[in-house]
Amino acid sequence: MAEILVLVEHAGETVKKVTGELLTAARRYGEPAAVWAGAGAEAGHARLAELGAAKVYVAAGADFDDYVVAPKAELLAELVAQKSPAAVLVAATAEGREVAARLAVKTGSGILTDVTALGDELTGEQSIFGGAITVQSRVSSGTPIIAVRPNAITPEPVPGEAVTEEVTITVSDAAKGARITGRVEQERGERPELTEASIVVSGGRGVGAAENFALIEKLADALGAAVGASRAATDAGWYPHQFQVGQTGKTVSPQLYLACGISGAIQHRAGMQTSKTIMVVNKDPEAPIFELADFGVVGDLFKVVPQLIEEIEKRAQS
């Protein structure tokens, strides 16, 4: 059986949730072979076995962590040449897409980005134009390279052997052109990452001020959720830009999306329309976001949200 290469997304030693989703998707088309680039593979190994990796290719060099994207694409290109996999799956994160892009050029293969489901013969489903249209696409030449949207596939882990094979490659000078010289981490508390979170609580212009985002954060924390924001809120400087949901921000697909004080412009919908359940709090009953709502409350978020938090906390105690 041909292998399906899965590029592991990890933060140091911690395997990210989307990797489990990719391994589940891979199993249907071949033998899931995880590819670990950079440090931390030993600590992550047990988790990959649990999630269903049949093999784990480990390339531990420091280059993968020191340079932007390109070394990982070289590693995958080497594995594509050696192992002739039936496909390569990556997470449709900023970095995953860029690795996929470079790999596509190296191997002359087609690439599908932001795929929300995989069908027969590796057909990828994509949601375009703000979610208005669903497209089924295929790669017609080369080794299919598919970037899958985090949270789109439900992980169904079947433990794998996770047989480790070390891979050594010499990263070319061309791939070392963009050197990471420092990292500035911004506080997001203990909250999950926006694109990976099962629940996202977002605030928009209706939140009214930067300091009021504390209320959105409080609700998020009560639910174990990530915080998102509309562009109106990030443009106003109320919340950092990397938390923007929408066309020019992140695309999220959580189990539950809770929009507070957001009107639901098409550009915002583009980033949250595929959420499984959508809940809305907005004081304007005409706001278009209600069209998407599984449950909506017409009301002032400064009254509704504190009560909701109180109820959640009450239930948590009982």
């Binding site: 669903t134 497209v135 696409s137 790669v139 329309q273 069209e291 998407l292 409350v297 017409v298 509704v304």
Partner: peptide
């Protein structure tokens, strides 16, 4: 190197429940 096999308009979401806050939202 890629092709669109088919496409369709996304089916509208099923209408949900909307309540007006009367102190119990």
């Amino acid at each position: 190197a890629t092709e669109v096999a088919s496409f369709a308009a996304r089916p509208p979401r099923q209408a949900g429940t909307v309540v007006t806050d009367e102190g119990d939202g």
